[in-house]
């Protein structure tokens, strides 16, 4: 199985530790992922701004970069969702079709492809899970409150399996954090307010470590945490599992 690590542009530049943790975690699970260094970005920032035509060269570049791999694994549901959902505007060559289905979010890869439903290790902290909308509603990684009162999901189960970890029960389990890509600057005021409200829910219910599977939401929330000096750390779930797994 030939696996590539897809490191979203902002992770590469600002959160290298998340990519490192993803790579190391995969290695501990027996998967030697390669990092094709010509990779750049999935093109979502342009497409979400209404410029998907301009993103086409980026889409082609993405496909060319990853076409020879069986799986393309990324620690960000939103980027993965974009590749799978929105690369439909370029010619659907076999390579494009392959890359669209082969691109998988990290924890989907671990649970659905590798079939691992429990990761050993201890993490004795109060952890709040932020569900990324594109992961949850787009990639169907977790139940939605619009459909069912049952709070369940792949990452939630993995986290709950760690020894000593206490999951925060939020008042609103799956409300958007307000990042929204370019929305966070074009609608900066609402974006910030949404993030503050999300964090208030976590603070109110005892979160000390805020985590999730999508670094883009977490980047936004972390910016707010640091500005308001809230008593919580923000870690990508890959960092938690990589640290917990000996």
């Amino acid at each position: 199985m030939k696996v590539a690590l897809f490191v979203p542009c902002y992770v590469d530049q600002f959160y290298p530790q998340v990519a490192i943790a993803s790579l190391q975690l995969l290695a501990k699970l027996g998967v030697a992922a390669a990092f094709p260094k010509q990779q750049t970005c999935c093109g979502q920032p342009m497409a979400n701004s209404g410029c998907e035509q301009d993103a086409k060269p980026v889409y082609h570049h993405f496909v060319d970069t990853f076409r020879d791999y069986d799986y393309v694994v990324g620690p960000a549901g939103s980027c993965v969702y974009h590749v799978r959902q929105h690369f439909d505007i370029i010619d659907q060559t076999p390579a494009v079709q392959h890359v669209r289905t082969a691109t998988v979010e990290l924890f989907d890869f671990i649970t659905q492809v590798l079939g691992i439903t429990e990761l050993p290790g201890a993490y004795p902290h109060r952890v709040g899970l932020h569900l990324s909308c594109h992961g949850q509603r787009g990639l169907h990684q977790a139940n939605e409150s619009e459909m069912t009162p049952v709070r369940d999901g792949r990452l939630r189960r993995l986290l709950a399996g760690l020894e000593g970890l206490a999951l925060t029960e939020l008042d609103r389990n799956d409300e958007c954090c307000g990042f929204g890509g370019t929305f966070c600057v074009s609608e900066a005021a609402i974006s910030a307010r949404m993030g503050q409200d999300r964090l208030a829910d976590h603070v109110r219910n005892g979160t000390r470590v805020l985590t999730g599977g999508d670094m883009s939401c977490l980047m936004h929330l972390e910016g707010l945490v640091r500005r308001r000096q809230l008593p919580m750390r923000v870690l990508h779930a890959a960092e938690i599992f990589n640290g917990a797994l000996a």
């Binding site: 600002f14 290298p16 990092f35 972390e222």
Partner: peptide
């Protein structure tokens, strides 16, 4: 971005450099 948020703390090197 910075009206309500801190920018990410810039790391020493990118992932690609580390790799």
């Amino acid at each position: 971005w910075a009206i309500a948020r801190e920018l990410p703390a810039p790391p020493q090197q990118s992932f690609r450099a580390w790799y």
